[in-house]
Design a binder for these strands. Structure first.
Length: 275
DNA sequence: GCGTCTTCCTGTAAGC
DNA sequence: TGCTTACAGGAAGACG
């Protein structure tokens, strides 16, 4: 499942493969992925003849800078981009194909069809959904510890749920929230209200360390993630708690537990992360 | 305003 | 063996 490190890895590989290419036309096989404009035919009309000038990232969203528009793309659980020669047969679960003028395709595949695309006028993308409420991610140079701290400490929700909320802190998903809380030594059910100032700093430092390390490793491959050149990530070998239930904790050898928190599988070490 | 629940989706694994 | 069911989970919208 692509979280910040996977999206960043995809962004970097995709940039090398698509910058400067011009979209001739688009084939859409699952229109529900196109969220804006409402009519996907309009999406096709608008995007034709535009060139990809840059690819940015905001939290877990990819932003393709075109001539007049920005394509805001979210991969959700299993979305993948790849660049192929046009003569190559479409793989299963291919839902959107951008045909470039140079004879190659940018293809979007998504087994569960949960990904989304919004085509918005350049310069307006941060002022409307879906990016409007997306907070800073902890790798941003000007990440505001103060803003984050206020949002955490005024909430009655548990910290696991708070860290998954992209309007509080962007980029973390289920894997990296569990890893961050392990590194910070905080139990996932701890209420935001009772998180101390010191713990807030520990959470941010742990998230930065975890995310930076995961980016360096090319992301985490749990089920199906590959970058845009088909390579898997390596960070799964460094996971301390996610998917490690019933195994011995690497720090203290106690048994890693798995519980459900707000419907999400949640992994923690009862000794390293006391309630 | 805030927090929780449901919905969207399908491949995989577990259970019978 | 073959069928059914539970599960995986990010984000938006509905609801209390």
């Amino acid at each position: 499942m692509p979280e910040l490190p996977e999206v960043e890895t995809i962004r970097q590989t995709l940039k090398q493969l698509t910058i400067g290419k011009t979209i001739q036309t688009v084939d859409i096989y699952w229109p529900k992925i196109i969220q804006e404009p409402d009519d996907y035919h309009h999406f096709i009309d608008l995007i034709k003849n535009q060139t990809i000038h840059d690819i940015r990232r905001k939290g877990k969203f990819l932003l393709f800078d075109l001539n007049q528009h920005v394509l805001v793309s979210h991969l959700r659980m299993e979305g993948k981009y790849g660049v192929y020669p046009q003569r190559e047969e479409l793989m299963a679960h291919t839902h959107v194909v951008f045909h470039f003028t140079d004879g190659t395709d940018l293809r979007y595949r998504d087994v569960r069809k949960l990904g989304t695309m919004h085509l918005q006028e350049r310069g307006t993308e941060l002022t409307k959904k879906p990016l409007l409420l997306v907070a800073q991610d902890p790798l941003e140079a000007d990440f505001s510890l103060q803003t984050f701290q206020k949002k955490v400490q005024k909430s009655e929700r548990n910290i696991k749920n708070i860290l998954l909320d992209q309007s509080v802190i962007a980029g973390l998903g289920n894997i990296y929230v569990d890893e961050t809380l392990f590194m910070a030594g905080i139990h996932p059910l701890t209420k935001g209200l009772s998180v101390t100032d010191e713990q807030v700093i520990q959470i941010v430092e742990a998230s930065v360390a975890t995310l930076k390390d995961a980016v360096k490793q090319g992301g985490t491959t749990i089920r199906s993630y590959v970058n845009s050149q088909g390579q898997i990530g390596m960070f799964q070998q460094k996971l301390n708690v996610y998917g490690q239930n019933d195994k011995a904790c690497r720090k203290c050898e106690d048994t890693i537990m798995k519980i459900k928190v707000n419907g999400r599988g949640t992994h923690y070490c009862p000794s390293c992360q006391p309630i």
